[in-house]
Simulated scan of single mutants.
Amino acid sequence: MRVVIAMLAVSCAACGQQSQQPAAEPESSTPVAPTPSPAAPPAPGTQGGLPDDRKPLEEPHGPIDPKSAEAAGQVVQSYGALIEQKRFAEAEKLWGDAARARGVSEELRRYAEVHLQIGKPEEPEGAAGSIYVNVPTVLYGKRNDGSAFNRSGQMTLRRVNDVPGSTEAQRRWHIESAEWLEKD
């Protein structure tokens, strides 16, 4: 019985709301342009998408070790946010090679909309006094003509080991390369 009373109360409330709404405005003869759909990356595990890793990233329990793969992933995350906002000069500072960074910015300026989807950073690997981390990524967005694009690949980050003579800047993660630049 209580359910029936509750349903009647909801129905009556809805009726009262309908009568209070303003009448629809007359249709305009001016055509309304459809709202463009937002750019979206391919789903993980599909062609062009990130790897389908069912194990979620663990949230850090305290400060992130600046030497860790997670710290490298944060650099990629920052880079993605900056290019999405078209703040290319700031994004370039996250690269190790200034000339390469400017070239990437020029490439990305060609697009009307740019986004970067980021996967789980791989385990760090050492080589010749440096540590490298690969981070799977998907660059996606819209071209100036409105058509969608997406390029999957990875970004490689590098930092110099804590060796005598290395500078603080060398010991920070920086972007070494972006594999998706060679595709399109």
Rank of each mutant, 00 (worst) to 15 (best):
D65C: 11
V104C: 11
K86V: 00
A169E: 05
Y140Q: 01
S68C: 08
G16R: 02
V160S: 06
A81V: 10
P51G: 09
P121D: 01
H174S: 14
A69R: 04
R87W: 00
P63G: 03
I83M: 02
G129M: 03
I5W: 15
A13H: 05
R143D: 03
V4Q: 06
G146C: 06
C15Y: 10
P63S: 13
I118W: 00
E123V: 06
D53Q: 15
E59K: 15
A98E: 10
S29P: 06
G96V: 15
H115K: 03
R151N: 07
A69K: 12
E176H: 09
E84Y: 02
V3M: 14
R110M: 06
P22W: 01
Y132W: 10
A112C: 03
L139N: 14
E70I: 00
G165W: 04
A169G: 05
Y111W: 03
R2G: 09
A71K: 01
Y79C: 00
F88Q: 04
N150F: 13
L8N: 11
Q170M: 08
A9T: 09
G141Y: 04
I5G: 06
A127F: 14
E107D: 15
S78M: 08
K67L: 09
P136K: 14
K142T: 09
D162Q: 12
K142S: 03
E179F: 08
P36L: 07
Q170F: 07
Q17C: 08
T137C: 07
A169D: 06
S11F: 13
P36A: 12
Q17N: 13
V4K: 08
V75W: 00
R102P: 15
A71N: 14
A71C: 06
T35W: 15
G165T: 01
L8I: 14
L181E: 04
A43V: 12
F88K: 00
H174V: 14
E59V: 04
Q21D: 11
S68H: 12
Q18S: 10
S166D: 03
G80I: 04
I5D: 12
